[in-house]
């Protein structure tokens, strides 16, 4: 078991529950869709899992360790085991594709010879090997999201968290990106993807955690549960 949440509650500042009494277990290597409407609590779940925010109640375990109370070194270790991808890509506009991806390796202090070798490999795998010297603004949305995904996987995390990664993409581009996610998952990486794209969820036939108003209302393999 790689992720476990027990009785997790998170309130917004106004006191309204963003997540209420969430209990889930996720095994290593699973592909999970977090579904629900806007405001259902999908993003809150993602943020809790890479510890951008802390739960008000309950425990979150990642790789059998509670992440509620971690010191700085442990937070760093957790983040290195977790790659994140967002709807708005969050690339650095002044850096090239190569530099954007290499930046993630520099940040965890990998040696330069390894960076030079691994970044082109991963860009190739994402199908953007020829874009290494381009700047983000010169790329299409789908290509930018692939750069973001390359950055998320470059340090070989155990878990990939994706918050609406196809939200800004057209259906064909989304399908291409989903195939890359499937490929990463096939290599053993656990993927948790928040999405409100019914079509993708119905096609992939993976485990779905359905959220509604901060409550977990469905947990089953198959299509859109709501």
């Amino acid at each position: 078991m790689i992720i476990q949440m027990t009785n997790v509650c998170k309130k917004y500042e106004k006191g309204k529950a963003a997540l209420n009494d969430i209990n889930i277990e996720i095994q290593k290597g699973e592909f999970i869709f977090l579904t629900g409407q806007s405001g259902a609590g999908k993003s809150t779940m993602i943020k809790l899992l890479f510890r951008e925010i802390l739960p008000d109640e309950g425990q979150i375990f990642v790789a059998n360790r509670s992440i509620n109370r971690l010191n700085n070194v442990e937070v760093v270790r957790l983040r290195r085991n977790t790659g994140v991808v967002f709807q708005d890509f969050r690339l650095m506009e002044t850096k090239t594709v190569f530099e954007n991806v290499a930046f993630a390796m520099k940040a965890i202090e990998e040696p330069w010879f390894l960076i030079k070798r691994r970044v082109p490999e991963v860009l190739e795998k994402m199908g953007i090997g020829d874009k290494a010297d381009s700047f983000p603004r010169q790329l299409s949305g789908g290509e930018q999201q692939r750069v973001a995904l390359a950055r998320a996987v470059i340090n070989r995390p155990m878990i990939i968290l994706a918050d609406e990664p196809t939200g800004n993409l057209d259906p064909d581009t989304s399908d291409d990106l989903m195939n890359i996610f499937s490929q990463i998952n096939a290599e053993g990486t656990t993927i948790i993807m928040a999405t409100h794209d019914k079509r993708i969820v119905n096609e992939k036939r993976k485990r779905v955690l359905a959220l509604k108003g901060g409550e977990l209302v469905g947990d089953a393999v198959g299509g859109w549960l709501l």
Binding site: V76, R79, N81, T82, I108, N155
Partner: peptide, 10 residues
């Protein structure tokens, strides 16, 4: 922000 996401040390 990116450095924090990928786990750069403080």
């Amino acid at each position: 922000r990116v450095m924090k996401y990928v786990g750069a040390s403080n």
